[in-house]
Design a binder for these strands. Structure first.
Lengths: 393, 393
DNA sequence: AATGTTTGTCTAGTGGCTGAACTAAGTTTA
DNA sequence: TAAACTTAGTTCAGCCACTAGACAAACATT
């Protein structure tokens, strides 16, 4: 209960954080401008700034341009004060990135595999992290945290409860990473991490209510509502892939019938391609990459398959609009690469809706390409570091 | 931007509000206990309490029981310091209640009608409010606000944009009521108001993530996420009645096909009854009340119709669980009265789901009977009054 | 009646913010 | 070129809310 009380420390922390955020957002900016933008007193800003300088979280660059008086001293966010690692664990790959505190990627490693055990994947993961750490430039704070996005449900304590496509159940990856690397580790669902990535660095930066639809083998959805990530009571929110869109539809292994992802995911796409006679080389099912190439070459069957998947995507997206009335919807993960072939039929479905609900709605495919989740994960770690660091001074 | 800064005033306001809330929750409670529960210093509590006493928002009752020392002075929330009015405007009724600041109903008025114009409904509404005001006991603050729940979309500014079943479009009821009664007026969607009512007074009091499904002529859903009402970007959230559950399903006037409310609302119920040969007296369609009576009498056709509607309700509820992972789901409005006949088939559908998602989930029908929305609306008004009143001292 | 406990008030002290004065360092104007 | 004007940033006294701890009041226990 004590946590809800207010006192001077809370005030100081809040204002300091506000100053830092303002510097991050408007870099470079002068003390006077911070005071204007935040409404804080000039003296207050000065004292916070001197603390942040001492902590090496910001820097003074040279004087800026005068607007008729003394030239301001410009302040910069010291995005090189530390680094964080963001990891996106997919069904058959691990993507790790090293970013500065601003989310700029300074190095990346990717490793592909198929059907590895948890322990084998852990080894891969450690190799990637070690390799990224070797390339990390010297800095004041060094590695400040590790964020990991996984394709499964994560408990509120950070434990991976179930990742069906990886065959994981109750894995405490957080603890093993924290023990090995001795920095805070944050585990998140891949769609949640992607949503956060888009909110921080992608198309959703100005949106308070943003829905990120991760369309890969399955469909997961990350929800940013009222500016914060919504995780649900136990961390299982966003399972829209298992939303019923067809009452007596296909049977899903989740137990329900007619789940959205049976009609609108990458899996649905390749199944549909196989049914329509598109074959890959070695008798395997065709891949997304192959279908993209076919469509690019004008293959009418492939194009039609994309249109069909897009139509089903549109149905679910219409549901999302009715449910959340969001500002921004972003389709990310693997199928974002086929945006060109999907967009049309999604838009077509949207035309069915009431016009009032379409107003003020932005729809797009991910701009961050395959980095959404890894970027979101690393941003988590950075944010966490900055919040804690400001708190305990 | 200025609003985000912190200073002593914010601290004071926050702590004062915390003290008042603690008193409301634990009435009667002593100063010493408040200090314990909140973590605030005894002196701070004393000073806040003396201000609240001066404002007549709390009262000192006699001394309480000693626990081995001086007897504490018990403090009570003065729930009679003012009154608010909550109104639930339905498709063919207006329900108005007068409540004290604690949400206790002290008087109620209901008026039934059908197919009135906006102006005629306004007259009815004013009559109800006037009549409630006449019965209002004298108090320090008198009427502190009016809250109204309407079956339609409400803009973030409080304007009613569209209430299809009432044939309203762009009605500024807020302004006309504020001009007439000179108190703050809050307009909300009926489902949102109901959700708030259940959160404050009903089954959802301990839930931070609560979904209220208002099943009447149509279906609307109120979303309380992370403890606060989620309204979406423009105030249109919760239109789950128009969630597609059947891709090539019935055509809805919203433009989509297979909308949930076409299969699971009161309208769907009476239509299904008519199709199954159940006739009302004067050749009209059977009513919900009539079907309840038939089911009560053991009529197998009626019971089966309820089972069928319950099954469709269950499909949508499963979707809600997958989307939101809520703590609590409450079915309210008209069809809550048929809970007995619906519960079974809803539960049956839920068994299809992954067990992890069912854990920690409470499902129930509204306990507040037909008062959910009106109570929520009046609570809005009360909360608003208390928040403002504390702020500007 | 003496001792110990709990409640509530009071007071001095602390810390953070504010406003205003002040210094520093420019630009504009005559 | 010097005077006048602007803008940037620092410093300091004053304010306000909170805190700790002393203290008085009121009660229970022995």
């Amino acid at each position: 209960m004590k946590s809800h009380t207010f006192n001077q420390h809370v005030v100081k922390k809040g204002n300091k954080s506000l100053v830092l955020q303002t510097i991050q957002e408007y870099t470079p900016i002068s003390r006077a401008d911070i005071a204007n933008k935040t409404g804080l007193n000039k003296g207050t800003v000065s004292s916070q700034v001197s603390e942040l300088l001492a902590e090496d979280l910001i820097l003074e660059s040279g004087p800026g341009v005068s607007s008729g008086g003394r030239r301001p001293v410009m302040l910069l966010f010291n995005h090189l004060a530390g680094y964080s690692i963001g990891v996106d664990i997919g069904v058959n790959y691990i993507l790790g990135i090293l970013t500065d505190l601003q989310g700029k990627i300074t190095n990346e490693k990717i490793s592909h595999f198929s059907e590895l055990t948890y322990e084998e994947i852990q080894i891969q993961l450690n190799m990637i992290i070690d390799s990224l750490l070797l390339s990390m430039p010297p800095s004041s704070y060094g590695l400040v945290g590790i964020g990991v996005g996984v394709p499964g449900t994560v408990s509120t304590k950070g434990e991976i409860l179930l990742a069906p496509n990886l065959n994981w159940r109750n894995k405490d990856l957080k603890r093993s990473l924290e023990e090995k690397y001795d920095v805070p580790v944050l585990i998140e669902n891949e769609a949640n991490a992607g949503a956060y990535g888009e909110k921080k660095f992608g198309a959703g930066q100005s949106s308070e209510n943003l829905i990120y639809i991760s369309v890969g083998i399955g469909i997961g959805v990350g929800l940013i509502l009222n500016g914060v990530l919504y995780k649900g009571h136990s961390g299982f929110s966003g399972e829209l892939g298992h939303m019923t869109i067809e009452v007596d539809g296909l049977l899903c292994r989740c137990g329900n019938q007619g789940c959205w992802e049976l009609y609108a995911s990458e899996k649905a796409l390749v199944n549909s391609a196989a049914e329509n006679g598109i074959r890959a080389e070695e008798g395997k099912k065709p891949s997304l990459e192959m279908l993209n190439k076919l469509a690019e070459g004008g293959d009418p069957v492939a194009i039609n398959i994309f249109r069909n998947i897009g139509d089903y995507l549109g149905i679910g997206i219409n549901n999302i609009i009715n449910i959340f009335n969001p500002e921004q919807i972003i389709v990310g993960n693997r199928l974002a690469s086929s945006g060109k072939w999907l967009r049309e039929s999604i838009k077509e479905r949207q035309k069915q809706m009431l016009r009032t609900h379409q107003k003020d709605l932005n729809f797009c495919f991910s701009q961050l390409s395959r980095y959404s989740a890894a970027l979101g994960a690393s941003a988590y770690a950075s944010e966490n570091f900055l919040a804690i660091n400001i708190q305990d001074v």
